[in-house]
Design a protein around this nucleic acid. Structure first.
Lengths: 286, 286
DNA sequence: TATCTTTTGTAATAAAATTACGTAAATAAT
DNA sequence: ATTATTTACGTAATTTTATTACAAAAGATA
């Protein structure tokens, strides 16, 4: 894997640890930031184990020893996966809520970056390359994402459209022809209308690619599912970051698509880009 | 400042260091990553100074000592603003282009997080709170952003709409009434149609908030401008991250708005949230 | 030039981490 | 159920690493 977040690695490996290692893991996960500042002795004491146990724990996670472990841990805290207390509070002013929102978005992106299945991304690119036509479906917030996707994929010289009207979706799903790809975007993956429509498309033998949450009805039903695990925001103030993650994943797919098409395709993109020039004021002012 | 990057701090403080401290700084800046992995002895040797000099150097930068310094340094290397060579290359496979795209998005977000003007954010929130009506304008990619903004601000019990049709925009701009806020989103800030329309609105005495690039015609013309400096992507493969940054800024504004409205407003949001429940399959399956 | 301040290194000390080793616990084999 | 074998864990010794105390050198000030 490209970049591994130590905290995730520890969390995932938790099951395969023995007794004292588990204690160490818990002590660290309880307050990773504090762990980066403590000595091996104090951490051992906090975990209720001996110092060598801590050392062995560190080596189990492929680090050179305790000091190296602390450095890796510190790195994983930065734009890493779970740092606590980044929630917006009632009393927050601009200078506190602004970075918090950026941080939590960055955080979610980093998590997905480290956990997304490259195999599935590749499979989806395969399907998009093979498609004669792509329909992007989404409702509400995901409608905006679908619209952005249309805008992006339109440049690929391929019939694409986006739809946020369930009746249109229903009709399209029931009249799909081979070569059509239905790319369905849904944060929850539980919207009844969407699931129904996808069922129709699947019954028709169509290719349905979903961008949604793991194990949701939509994910299960679709031909291929890009599953994005962004924690539901329990916090009312917090923004919905899943749509941002979805957009970035669409960027990834578009990039994969472009790369697959090869270098001569770049001239086509250049043509589209320059077609917009006359609509703009140039850098000099007018 | 909220988030300080140790490497930047060292670079900035370089002038005020004495001879041996400068040597240490240079040794570190030459290869910060290596510095995080070396002992005080090896770093001292590399810099050509004694070990206590390295230690004193660390303390000068407000760290507890050498080990703590290394941890801070390691942190500043992650998702910091300066990582090189994150461009997508022709030969990239899924497992290399995927993290690259995530990383460059994260990077841009981090940069904006550290440079955005809190004062202007606050001023914009003021205007939104005071508004009787908000129009979100955007074309192309920014149209999708505007649509997302409508979806978000709609929840605030306030007449909002989004428009991606220049004729509609033109009509609305020329018939604006006091209390209207035109929120104009444009990556370049140079689209002629948009600039023309904003000129009309301004002539009419309307409030125009822009979310665009610094010093662009749109930024200059508008009443208030949230300027986002995301480098133009020269790379054909690279995605346009500015729209992502725009979305996050809209999240920030929506949060500021919610906080300003006070806690009783949360019940209103809760109501909207629960109105969507019957449209979804619940967690149990059906 | 004499005196004071700042900078720097040497050497001693302290702290921290690692290793070696032995015992205890858990698991497997008979 | 008992023994053998493996695995887990801690104690204590050792080594590595970092810090402190101190003094010499360099530089600044009068």
């Amino acid at each position: 894997m490209y970049y591994e977040n130590l905290i995730d690695v520890i969390t995932n490996g938790l099951a395969s640890l023995n007794k004292s290692e588990t204690k160490v893991a818990q002590a660290i996960l309880l307050d990773p930031e504090a762990a980066t500042r403590s000595s091996i002795a104090s951490l051992a004491k906090k975990a209720g184990v001996s110092e060598p146990s801590v050392n062995r724990f560190c080596k189990r996670f492929k680090t050179a020893g305790f000091p190296d472990f602390k450095i890796q841990l510190a790195k994983s805290l930065v734009s890493g996966v779970r740092f606590v207390n980044r929630n917006v509070d009632e009393g927050d002013q601009v200078d506190s809520y602004t970075p918090k929102i950026f941080d939590s978005t960055i955080n979610d992106l980093a998590r997905v970056r480290d956990n997304i299945s490259h195999k599935i991304v590749n499979d989806v690119v395969d399907q998009l390359i093979a498609a004669n036509r792509i329909y992007f479906f989404g409702l509400g917030t995901s409608g905006a994402v679908a619209r952005d996707a249309e805008n992006k994929f339109f440049r690929f010289n391929l019939p694409v459209s986006f739809h946020d009207d369930v009746l249109m979706m229903r009709m399209l799903a029931s009249t799909g022809s081979p070569g059509d790809v239905f790319f369905v975007i849904s944060h929850t993956g539980r919207t009844k209308e969407i699931v129904d429509i996808v069922q129709i498309a699947i019954n028709n033998g169509a290719m349905v690619v979903a961008l949604t949450s793991p194990k949701s009805p939509l994910a299960i039903l679709s031909s291929i599912s890009l599953e994005v695990d962004v924690p539901e925001n329990t916090d009312e103030y917090m923004a919905m970051t899943s749509r941002i993650v979805h957009l970035v994943i669409l960027d990834v797919l578009a990039t994969g698509f472009t790369l697959r098409r090869g270098p001569e395709f770049l001239t086509h993109l250049e043509k589209i880009k320059s077609s917009l020039k006359p609509t703009r004021y140039d850098q000099s002012g007018k």
